[in-house]
């Protein structure tokens, strides 16, 4: 299962379990598996909370190193100020503001593209240790 649609709250669990399973099959250690499933949980929840629905795409193998690339897309409201949203502790809804910066710390690479009124795409990568 490489594509998980996020429509309801339970889909967050489906997405993180799917990512963990793939990570395990790829040979990631237990701590990395946990980092991956936790990051997925945060970003999938953001889709559910802020965009209502969207998709999580999990791919093995990414250039230039082998690993996992996970893409989160939604057609929600978009993020006005990405830098602000990435600030540890900043939240537009008085939550903890840990999701985006935390997911960045848990992965090896993260990028965000967002356009107001159009939607948001977040990509994270986790590489297998050499």
């Amino acid at each position: 299962m490489n594509l998980v649609r996020i429509k309801e709250e339970r889909d967050i669990v489906v997405a993180r379990s799917a990512a963990k399973k793939i990570a395990q099959e790829m040979g990631f250690g237990l701590v990395d598996q946990t980092r991956i499933s936790t990051a997925v949980s945060e970003l999938a929840r953001n889709i559910y909370l802020y965009a209502g629905q969207g998709e999580v795409h999990i791919e093995a193998d990414c250039n230039p190193r082998s690993g996992l690339r996970i893409t989160f897309t939604d057609q929600g409201p978009g993020i006005a100020d990405i830098k602000l949203a990435m600030t540890d502790g900043w939240s537009s809804v008085k939550s903890m503001g840990k999701g985006l910066p935390g997911a960045a710390r848990l992965s090896d690479h993260m990028e965000i593209q967002s356009e107001l009124g159009k939607g948001t795409t977040v990509i994270i990568e986790k590489w297998l240790p050499e």
């Binding site: 936790t38 710390r105 848990l106």
Partner: peptide, 14 residues
């Protein structure tokens, strides 16, 4: 709490 969970939680910032 599992070691992997504890490590991840701290890295997440909690």
């Amino acid at each position: 709490m599992n070691p992997a969970v504890a490590i991840t939680l701290v890295e997440l910032g909690l």
